[in-house]
Amino acid sequence: MSRTILTFAEIRNHELRQVALEAVSAAVKIAGTAPSEIASCLLVPVDTSLDALERYAESLFTHGANRVYVLKHADFTAYHAELYLGAVQQVVSTANPEFIIFGHTSVGRDLAPRLASMLQAGQISDVTAIQHEDGNLLCTRPLYAGKAVEQRAFTGTSAAPSIITIRPNNIPLSAPDSSRSGEVIEVAFAPPSLRTIVRDVVRKTSGTLDLSEAKIIVSGGRGVKSTNGFKPLEELASVLNGAVGASRGACDAGYCDYGLQIGQTGKVVTPEIYIACGISGAIQHLAGMSGSRVIIAVNKDPEAPIFKVADYGIVGDLFEVVPLLTTAFREFLEHEA
């Protein structure tokens, strides 16, 4: 009998999130050579077009899923803890999975522990790598926002499924194979009775990338000096199709929203390119961004600790340097196109 590995296929702004494909890739990795069914759970608003559904399912199949469970509800336009839990629970009782994988996103962080508790299951959160070793499945995850790293394994005699949340941008995508296909199963969703009501969602981030999934981040610290001071950083991020972040110093000074904060308090990010502008490099900030592939630092102070972790440093005033970078990148990208 083959076992089932279930993934949660998260949708944001009518698109499958990259982390949904990373979750399927994690499932492929967990499956290894053992015969396994890889199923994805997709929650969509009732008015979702067939085209869109096919597109979602195709992507999931291409990366390794064999089955997609689709549940529809008018209120699947925004996250609702009780509604989503009811839906996933229904898929779990249908699919009877051995593993359940979520993205460690706003939705996954909220939903997975609730489901884990309901199923009396263990959960390993914020996993950055998965490997098999001597018959054990080892999950690597950061401690202290990345100042240390642990490997955890599932243990004990419980028959409950094992739940994993994966950090976006870390699990490599399995090789896409467009010849792969699978079955789409629509599950009639019986919503639970609700004790909370989502009355409104204020979108402050429409059109901008979430920090945890951004490939390029332009980040500002106290050196940015004001809310207005973020403007040149936003321009650079926009040219690079990246996201804007901030240090705790900039957030505490009120230059930007706490949602942008990167560090041990705030978000931990692992982009391809991290451009730190006017950030001195306090330990609590370094914890949140040291996993970036390439770090670029722009700072007036040549002694700033940020230069000790930066691959490339530019000593200078960010208000001079950042616009020069914007122009240089724009010219480079236009030349490439």
């Binding site: 401690l143 240390a148 490997q151 040291s290």
Partner: peptide, 13 residues
């Protein structure tokens, strides 16, 4: 209270 997960190794990045 049987643990569902356990630490296997600890290291510095």
């Amino acid at each position: 209270l049987e643990a569902r997960t356990t630490r296997v190794s600890l290291s510095l990045p």
